[in-house]
């Protein structure tokens, strides 16, 4: 949901508003009242439950050969690329909170020494587009065990340096392909894709893959998410 993408469309969308007489036909008025909003939120909550039930912790996302990797990967955020945070490895810290025994903060150096797994998977955006990319980093499960997190809790929440935040269900956090990615396309994770660390989750839509992660929490209290709190489906599994 990039800003530029949206502003491109804004003129186009506003152009349609002059055709107000057709508003009932398009159902716009129906959507914009409170009971309809409640119904839709309840259906989204129901879809969260269905998706949690559909999620198979042992089912791996399809992987692809190196030749399938998209050489030009798409940038996407709620701000333009040149506004992406520029985190300094000398001062960066990953902070831990919630049901975690070892809450010591992590520096870039320590993070990058963690064991790594590599994957070539498809990143699917909620907008419909998809790109195949290569990421590598520490399986989140391995990290959660290392910091002695309570994996009986429901959620793992992430806070990012750009004000973004999101959260995932524990089964997905423990999935073997859910990784703390440190590299993209065999290079240190570039700034625009979330340096120094993003969470790569091939079993979820792109917006559930937070970049510039600076805090991680393990909790039973629903942490929500930036887009999720605006009505995007929370589970958003693939």
């Amino acid at each position: 949901m990039s800003t530029s993408h949206k502003t491109d469309r804004r003129g186009f969308l506003k152009g349609g508003l002059s055709l107000g007489a057709l508003s009932l036909l398009s159902g716009c008025d129906l959507t914009d009242n409170e009971p309809a909003q409640r119904l839709l939120w309840n259906m989204s909550w129901w879809n969260d439950r269905v998706q949690a039930w559909l999620f198979n912790p042992n089912r791996l996302a399809p992987t692809y050969p190196e030749s399938a990797v998209d050489r030009v990967f798409r940038y996407n955020a709620f701000y333009p690329e040149d506004e992406a945070p520029k985190l300094d490895p000398a001062t960066y810290k990953l902070e831990l909170s919630g049901a975690i025994r070892d809450k010591r903060t992590w520096t870039v150096d320590r993070l990058y020494q963690l064991p790594k797994a590599s994957q070539i998977t498809r990143h699917v955006c909620v907008e419909g587009w998809s790109r195949i990319g290569k990421w590598s980093g520490c399986p989140l499960r391995n990290f959660l065990e290392r910091i002695e997190a309570d994996i009986t809790k429901k959620y793992v929440g992430f806070i990012c340096a750009d004000g973004y935040y999101t959260s995932i269900d524990m089964p997905t956090a423990l999935h073997p392909q859910t990784i703390m990615a440190f590299t993209f396309a065999d290079q240190i994770l570039p700034r625009k894709f979330g340096y120094p660390m993003k969470i790569r989750i091939p079993t979820k839509l792109g917006f559930k893959n937070p970049k510039f992660v600076v805090a991680l929490s393990v909790t039973d209290a629903y942490p929500g998410g930036f887009w999720e709190d605006y009505g995007y489906n929370w589970f958003s599994g693939s």
Binding site: R10, L17, L22, Y230, G231
Partner: peptide, 24 residues
């Protein structure tokens, strides 16, 4: 054309969803 599509007015969507109508 946006008037043929379904999912709430883009401007109201800005209020509910912080975007122009995809979430709805």
């Amino acid at each position: 054309p946006v008037w043929l599509t379904f999912g709430g007015w883009p401007e109201v969507s800005q209020h509910w969803h912080n975007e122009q109508g995809l979430a709805g």
